[in-house]
């Protein structure tokens, strides 16, 4: 039941983003006569502090959130997996150096490091993605390195090595495919944490800049009018919560699905 609900919410948001594009809703259309209006037949979710449609901005914000989450996850996974594979496969000095760098990044709280990078790089969508990518790769590197350390001594890897397989072939054909299920589950959780980080940075004014919509910035504006127009902050807050919850539940279900031990039970 929960699994269906999670996939349902995810599907809803994906459809909403696509349909928002099709309907060509303008998230930046200002209407000074509709400031902080409650939901109506014209504006289904009401209006924000400049009379803009909350629905249009919510859909645009979802698009931005998904774009950032997918892009950052793709970049961090690629970099992290590459570093983890090299460290785990070669071991020795290479492992030591790469893992010490990883440990340095792990020692800082991720979001604080992202805030520091975003503050140095300046606000904006691209800089936000760079800041999140600079901090997000470490968990992939640690995970991949640990898995590679155990996989590299497996019989099939040793057999391929004795038959003269090259290092790229060993990694690409004999180790990486066995890591896929673990990495997919990690990526699912990472999507949720990146979306949360994007919203946090935008909330602090370090993310998407005005007039472009983002859920974090909308939440920040909504909090200002919490007592006057509670619908604004509630709609944005509930949307963010539902999407993050759905991604996490989706990740759980994916993990259960890919877990071979559970299947054996």
């Amino acid at each position: 039941m929960i699994k269906i609900l999670a996939y349902g919410i995810l599907l809803f948001w994906l459809l909403a983003v696509v349909l928002g594009r099709l309907f060509q809703l303008d998230p930046n259309q200002i209407d000074l006569n509709a400031i902080l209006n409650t939901p109506s037949a014209v504006y289904w979710l009401g209006n924000d502090d400049m009379g803009r449609s909350i629905l249009a901005r919510l859909l645009h914000g979802a698009e931005v959130s998904l774009l950032v989450a997918v892009s950052v996850t793709a970049v961090t996974m690629t970099v992290g997996v590459l570093i983890g594979l090299l460290a785990g496969f070669y071991g020795g000095r290479v492992d030591q150096v790469l893992m010490q760098v990883t440990d340095v990044f792990l020692a800082f709280p991720g979001i604080l490091l992202a805030i520091a990078f975003a503050a140095v790089l300046g606000p904006g969508l691209l800089n936000l993605m760079i800041a999140l990518s600079l901090t997000g790769w470490v968990s992939y590197a640690r995970l991949t390195r640990g898995q590679t350390l155990s996989l590299r001594n497996r019989q099939h890897v040793l057999a391929a090595l004795s038959l003269g397989a090259s290092v790229p072939r060993l990694i690409g054909k004999h180790i990486l495919p066995l890591l896929t299920s673990v990495l997919v589950v990690e990526a699912a959780y990472s999507l949720a944490s990146v979306m949360m980080a994007e919203a946090s940075l935008s909330f602090l004014g370090l993310g998407i800049q005005a007039p472009n919509a983002s859920w974090g910035a909308m939440l920040r504006d909504g909090v200002r009018y919490m007592l006057v127009a509670p619908h604004y902050v509630l709609i944005v807050g509930l949307s963010l919560m539902s999407l993050i919850l759905a991604i996490n539940l989706g990740g759980d279900s994916l993990r259960d699905h890919l877990d071979v031990r559970q299947e054996a039970d």
Binding site: N28, I30, L32, D49, M50, G205, A210, P211, R220, D221, R224
Partner: peptide, 15 residues
């Protein structure tokens, strides 16, 4: 500045 009301006024003037 990052003041919310200043940003709001700037966004309206931008439009």
């Amino acid at each position: 500045s990052t003041d919310a009301q200043r940003l709001r006024l700037a966004t309206i003037m931008q439009a």
